[in-house]
Design a protein around this nucleic acid. Structure first.
Length: 240
DNA sequence: CCAGACGTTGTT
DNA sequence: GTCTGG
DNA sequence: CCAGACGTTGTT
DNA sequence: GTCTGG
């Protein structure tokens, strides 16, 4: 699945990479090597209109459906299964017309070893180019804010997952989906299409990734920095 | 009809 | 065990 | 995803 | 908002 990831890229670099028309940034996010659900993240999306506009935005990780009474359940909706997203009440409307891409350097998975020890891995492209994670976004009206207030609307997103493929299945059986090269416009389109056609635009990220073991320092969200990506090999047992 | 839920993951 | 916070 | 809290009272 | 259960 995808419960912790990395983005070190600047909004300027992301604007170029995704050819956005406008960056609508409530804040500038620093490079983050330990992004967890409920944190602020960058998302690329198309806003509907006469001429749809591609935007880079800051949203919160954990989708809040428009009909939610409050946003307390958001942390649970950090992932959505592609197998069911089109039908689930929480995701159906977003899947129809509010698709997005979340840029990532890579993400972390934990493999449970025999004996209960959990070994974290960093999964990334061999060439370290950005992952274009397939996502959905939603807008929730915060009724405690007056209309026109900058925070009157809460923007949130969820990352789509599917079954892992290839050797990386050994680490984890679920993996985030990425938008296939050349499929960005179709994926971000606000026009509804058949779920099967949309699914064909995506690929399991495990198809293009490699993994390296890292330190359990990443387990705590209080830790951050590029050192979390360094390969960590357990010290060889000392013989007496 | 109204009331109430609406999610994923991992683990057992 | 289960929920919340990051 | 993992880590950390999980409670009330009264006093500072 | 939309579906399920009663």
């Amino acid at each position: 699945m995808c419960g912790r990831y990395v983005n070190s890229r600047s909004p300027e670099d992301l604007g170029v990479e995704f050819d956005v028309d406008q960056s609508v940034l409530s804040e500038r996010l620093a490079p983050d090597y330990n992004i967890a659900p409920t944190k602020r993240i960058y998302a690329v999306l198309d806003r509907p209109g006469d001429t749809p506009e591609r935007q880079l935005r800051v949203v919160t990780w954990g989708l809040v459906p428009s009909w939610a009474k409050d946003r307390s359940g958001a942390a649970k909706l950090s992932n959505a299964r592609i197998e069911t997203a089109a039908e689930k009440p929480s995701f159906a409307r977003a899947f129809k017309s509010r698709r997005a891409v979340v840029p990532a350097d890579g993400y972390f998975e934990w493999r449970r070893q025999d004996g209960g020890v959990k070994q974290p891995f960093f999964l990334h492209r061999p060439d370290d180019r950005a992952l274009h994670l397939a996502a959905l976004y939603e807008l929730w009206r915060d009724s405690t804010r007056e209309a026109g207030h900058p925070d009157a609307w809460w923007w949130s997103a969820t990352i789509l997952t599917t079954e892992s493929t290839g050797e990386l299945r050994d680490i984890h059986d679920r993996t985030p989906l990425t938008v296939r090269p050349g499929a960005l416009d179709a994926w971000l389109s606000t026009a509804p299409s058949h779920p099967d056609e949309l699914r064909a635009l995506l690929a399991p990220s495990t198809e293009e990734l490699v993994a390296r073991p890292v330190s359990t320092l990443v387990n705590s969200v209080r830790n951050n920095g590029p050192h979390l990506l360094e390969e960590y090999v357990e010290a060889a047992p000392t013989l007496f």
